Simulated scan of single mutants.
Amino acid sequence: MTAQTWNLDQSDGELRIRTGVEGRAAKMGHRLTIAVNSWHAAVEWSDGEPSGVTLAAEVDSLEVLSGEGGVTPLTGPEKALARSNALKVLNAKRFPRIEFETSDIEKTGNGYRLTGTLQINGKTREQAVDLTVQEVDDVWRMSCEATVRHSDFGLKPYSMLMGSMKVADAVTVAFTAKRNNR
């Protein structure tokens, strides 16, 4: 079997970030859902199995979609402010991309375990991701969730009210995509 590459981007699926809120005044804050609107993944195939995966996300493409909780509903200007704060926290001007690259892919009962390096803010850490794959009518439906900590990458979560309300250190990154398997 010959080698091939699958190229995926935001037209094939979604990359989302979900944040939490910590601190004494946490009930005042919103748990955000943030879209990454520009990303690209490449899946290298060899002998019918994935042999390498890379994913690059453009930090400047972040968009705050919604906020749960809080004292009042999240408004448009508050979404814009949250986006601006996220770009500052992620040091987007200096490090415009977040990148993941596998060093190992292991088949599991319902998909693959992707182990590799995640680079955020110029810092690289090991990251494992369990990718679930469902094949229906020659279409692969892929999904995964992973926890990423600000502190692992030298980032200080946004805070206000002298630290009594801040974005939780751990955020959840969720990925879903579909691809014809021809």
Rank of each mutant, 00 (worst) to 15 (best):
L155K: 01
E63D: 13
E63N: 11
A26T: 01
V36Q: 00
L114W: 07
I98M: 09
T5R: 13
L8G: 07
P96K: 13
E22G: 05
E135P: 02
R141L: 09
W45H: 09
Y158H: 08
T115H: 02
A174Q: 05
R18A: 15
G13P: 05
V129W: 01
D47T: 14
V43I: 14
A82C: 11
D104I: 05
P157I: 07
R18G: 08
R97G: 00
T54Y: 02
L32G: 04
T147A: 13
G111P: 05
K178T: 15
S151L: 01
N37K: 04
A177D: 08
K88F: 02
M165I: 15
L62S: 01
A25L: 15
A41I: 00
R16K: 15
K93A: 15
T72Y: 06
A80N: 05
P73R: 08
S84Q: 13
M160A: 14
V167F: 02
M165Q: 01
P96F: 13
P157L: 02
V53K: 08
D47R: 14
T124E: 00
Q127A: 10
K93F: 09
P96H: 10
R16T: 15
F175P: 02
S164R: 05
F95K: 00
R18M: 11
R18I: 12
V136R: 15
G20S: 10
S66Y: 00
V139S: 06
I34C: 04
